[in-house]
Amino acid sequence: MPQVVFTPNLQRHLACPPRAVAGRTVAAALQEVFADNPVLRGYVLDDQGQLRQHVAIFVDGRQINDRARLTDPVREASEVFVVQALSGG
């Protein structure tokens, strides 16, 4: 099963341990995670369900292309890594 992993920065604010999911797209994988943790959705997606500007998602080390509908495919052994950008110095 694909594994969804959140950056340690997000894990400091919310309970979001790595999770195996059955989704075949980034959207489907995230929906499974959000079903158990709806507060997390607001950190990752905006009001239109699109990826927030300060968030990036990588599938198997490659940044996703579809930030609006999250249709990038996820394979059985994929790792979906959700990163929240940090700023400051």
Rank of each mutant, 00 (worst) to 15 (best):
V21N: 08
L14G: 03
P17H: 14
N37E: 04
E32Y: 00
R12F: 03
A29I: 02
V21W: 07
L10E: 09
L10H: 09
A35E: 13
V33W: 07
A35Q: 13
T25N: 07
A20V: 09
G23S: 04
P17L: 15
P18D: 14
C16G: 01
A22W: 02
R24K: 15
H13Q: 14
Q11K: 12
F34E: 08
G23Q: 11
T25I: 01
L14K: 12
R24I: 06
R24F: 02
A35K: 09
A20E: 14
A20D: 08
A35R: 12
F34P: 11
T25K: 06
R24P: 06
H13W: 12
P18V: 13
A22R: 15
L10S: 08
L30F: 01
C16L: 05
Q11R: 15
A35M: 06
V39Y: 06
H13R: 14
P18F: 13
A22Q: 14
R19K: 15
C16F: 02
Q31P: 01
A27G: 05
N37S: 06
A28E: 15
D36E: 14
R19M: 13
H13Y: 15
V33F: 07
L10V: 11
A22I: 02
A15G: 05
Q31H: 05
L30Y: 00
V21S: 11
Q31N: 11
R19H: 05
P38W: 00
L10T: 10
G23P: 12
A29H: 07
R12T: 05
F34D: 08
A35V: 04
A22S: 15
D36W: 01
F34L: 08
A20P: 00
R19A: 08
N37V: 02
V21I: 06
Q11C: 03
V33H: 06
T25Y: 03
P18M: 12
P17V: 10
Q11A: 15
N37K: 05
L14R: 13
A20T: 08
E32K: 01
G23N: 06
A15M: 07
Q11E: 12
Q11S: 06
R12L: 08
A20G: 04
L14Y: 14
E32F: 01
R24V: 10
H13I: 10
D36L: 07
A15T: 11
P38R: 04
V26I: 05
L30D: 00
V26E: 07
A20Y: 07
R12K: 14
R19G: 03
P17W: 13
A29N: 10
V26Q: 10
A35H: 07
A29S: 15
G23H: 07
L10P: 07
P38H: 02
V21E: 10
V33S: 08
